[in-house]
Nucleic acid binder design. Sequence first.
DNA 1: GTTCCTGCAAAAGATTTGCAGTGAC
DNA 2: GTCACTGCAAATCTTTTGCAGGAAC
Lengths: 149, 149
Amino acid sequence: MNSHAATDSWVERAEATLAAAGHKRGGARRTVVELLDSQQCALTAVEIEDALRGERRRVSRASIYRILDELERLRLVQRVETGQAMVRYERVCEHEEHHHHLVCDECGVVMPFSDKALESAIETLSERVPLKVSEHEIVLHGSCQDCAA
Amino acid sequence: MNSHAATDSWVERAEATLAAAGHKRGGARRTVVELLDSQQCALTAVEIEDALRGERRRVSRASIYRILDELERLRLVQRVETGQAMVRYERVCEHEEHHHHLVCDECGVVMPFSDKALESAIETLSERVPLKVSEHEIVLHGSCQDCAA
DNA sequence: GTTCCTGCAAAAGATTTGCAGTGAC
DNA sequence: GTCACTGCAAATCTTTTGCAGGAAC
């Protein structure tokens, strides 16, 4: 499930960062971290709960939100707002290409994409704007191939 | 408050589109439409309710949501997701420059910006992606000049 | 033993819906 | 008169919080 090099896998960085922040190792948190690591794209809290209910250990909704919140504070995951009712979360990889999202407004599927030209446009722009920019989020809405057919 | 040319002001287009869609003229809806027309940037439902409570006619929260929902379906307003708890809405002007948003994560202020290079990057990109793109949303997060000082 | 971690149940906050009365055409 | 519009109150849904027991160190 996990295709990173062993030495800088996201799970390991997450565990290390959590430990450095004074956290103990909790079973629920480890389970969530492992699930997030195995995902290619962003999940909602409910999707995480459902994914864990069958497979691995069950984790309560409240814990999932608490864990996601802490992971976000530590910049290990990022929120993705897709305009759907629920917020999505995905892991942040330091050495990996930054990506954004495509959302099909008909079926709700969310897919990642990345584009160099877009990133450099954002970078240039960030310096001309009355805001010290720390992050950016881009979402393209439309119909996916299945729904447009 | 309103700086459009009389012939294609957003209020007029909105009224015409609503009428064409079989709507009668409602006092609450007209009040909300006029408020949205007077705004430079996106408002939340609660901000709309508060703005109307003092000044013009009071409109119930439920009606505001229903009105915004209908205006969105007719593509007269668009949602803006800023990562704050509430969704924001703003009018969509056909002949005006498309804009996006800067959000200060400290004080919550939302500002509009626009950038040609960014728009063309999006346009080019939209054709290479497995989605029939109909809309896009870009949000830059960071600290505004007051908060960064 | 202290401090963090979890689940459960309750709370909070945003948005939606049911219903009954009012208004537009 | 009919069908849309609106407000109120209740419901729904996502996310947060309080609390008590359990686990890590």
